[in-house]
Amino acid sequence: MKDYLLIFRADFSKMLNSSEEEKKAMTQKYMDWIGDIANKGNLANQGNRLAPTGRIVSTGNLVTDGPFTETKEFIGGYSMIKADSYEQAVAVTEGCPVFILNGKVEIREVMTI
């Protein structure tokens, strides 16, 4: 089995303006989905959710505020899974709550640093 990183991309700006209940429901959906992966023995690392604010450092050490949540492919978080192949990794993404937000899951094979 290899490790694959799942990167959750979506326009999260809608989420930021949603009610506490909606946020809670979304978190619950995510926990159910990831819990299911863990149950099957396919979870390598739950990963992190990322706060919506941050900085971008560019060449020449230029620092800008951002990133911008209204970007359609804004990164909301990531998790690491174990799978035998890309095909199996794709199957694991089924039911990921990021799809509710019309988002995407980027699947990347991991190289150990």
């Binding site: 992190n48 959710r49 990322l50 706060a51 604010t53 941050g54 900085r55 971008i56 450092v57 560019s58 060449t59 951002g66 990133p67 990164i75 978080g77």
Partner: peptide, 10 residues
């Protein structure tokens, strides 16, 4: 043209 995005873990 490359960048490094810095994000706080929620």
């Amino acid at each position: 043209g490359n960048t490094v995005e810095v994000r706080k873990v929620a």
